[in-house]
Design a protein around this nucleic acid. Structure first.
Lengths: 175, 175
DNA sequence: GTGAACAGTTTAGCATACTGAACTATAGAC
DNA sequence: GTCTATAGTTCAGTATGCTAAACTGTTCAC
């Protein structure tokens, strides 16, 4: 575990900053994952719900575009989310063909407890910093968030050019 | 995005600290996800690889325990990881029945570029802070990481007790 | 050495969720 | 009012990955 040589990715650095980032990132991902399973959501469904939360209510076709799924798959996806109470369908009053799919719905007791626990824990963390220090942290978080978003875009661009330019004969690209 | 009303979970707070946390969390998850697709890994496979990265080389049965999969499924999982060059099998020299499965292997050019981009971006972020400020950030990151881990454990405990005793009157646990 | 226990692989059967195409209902053009 | 385009649903076919159980090879007790 200390020196496994060919470790991939973010580990394998001795840089304490990188290590710190890795551990935070892992913790965030694990928390997110735990939350998903607490909600009874598979990873793809949880991801779709995240899109709805972040970007607000949208039509089924918009959700299809954002998730990369076909229209038929989105119907099933929204069925599952709605059945679990994590999202709801409404007709668009302006165009009654159209749906408005919104995240929300009743929060389960377990989920509420999980968020309460997180809130309490983070309040305890926050209490250990002065306002000036918290401002520094906020600045760092903001810059880091922006950097991560840039990297996500960069990766998307990379993948797009890879899919376009790479003349893979079998064409068995993205999953 | 600004006012979506009945948003579930971490959004919907006016607390700027919570909002900040949500955005960082989302960005981390998205980055992680982008990385996974860049590596050609499904979410479960990426998760398993993360376990291997974090916890170091382990036997197939240990990986089965950690992922909650059966032995047969782990064989398939490791097959996929190995085929993609993300992990490798080795026989345990002490017990030749046993495998040692380790994360690693050749890093694809795309992946290397992604990490390089992240490293560069984070270096630029870091450059905007004094050493004293970075120490504050490090302290916050450490505490936050610990809090998240505690919450993950708490959720796991919650789920375990739910699965065992399910004392909820309506019993509407969405499996 | 022999037999039981163990680690991992293989295989059959099954569940899930995707794609693509037909279908229903609404909107907008004429 | 009719015709075409659009939004979403339903359905058949398919791919993926899981579980459970049989199987192969290794270790350990005796």
């Amino acid at each position: 575990m200390t020196t496994d040589g060919a470790s991939v990715g973010t580990s394998g650095h001795d840089d304490p900053a990188a290590r710190m980032g890795t551990e935070l990132s892992d913790a965030v991902v694990l928390f997110h994952d735990a939350l998903g399973s607490l909600m009874g959501l598979s990873a793809p469904d949880h991801k779709a719900l995240g899109i709805l939360r972040r970007e607000g209510p949208m039509s089924a076709s918009a959700l299809a575009r954002r998730t990369g799924l076909t229209a038929g798959a989105v119907t099933g996806l929204v069925d599952r989310l709605e059945r679990g109470g994590h999202a709801r369908r409404e007709r668009d009053p302006d165009d009654r063909r159209r749906l408005v799919i919104a995240a929300g719905g009743p929060v389960s007791p377990g989920l509420a407890a999980a968020f309460a626990g997180l809130g309490k824990g983070m309040a305890e963390v926050t209490a250990q910093f002065t306002p000036a220090e918290l401002a520094v942290v906020a600045r760092w978080v903001e810059l880091t968030t922006a950097t991560l978003r840039e990297q996500v875009d960069e990766i998307a661009r990379l993948r797009a050019s890879e899919a376009a330019g790479s003349p893979s004969p079998d064409g068995s690209s993205t999953g």
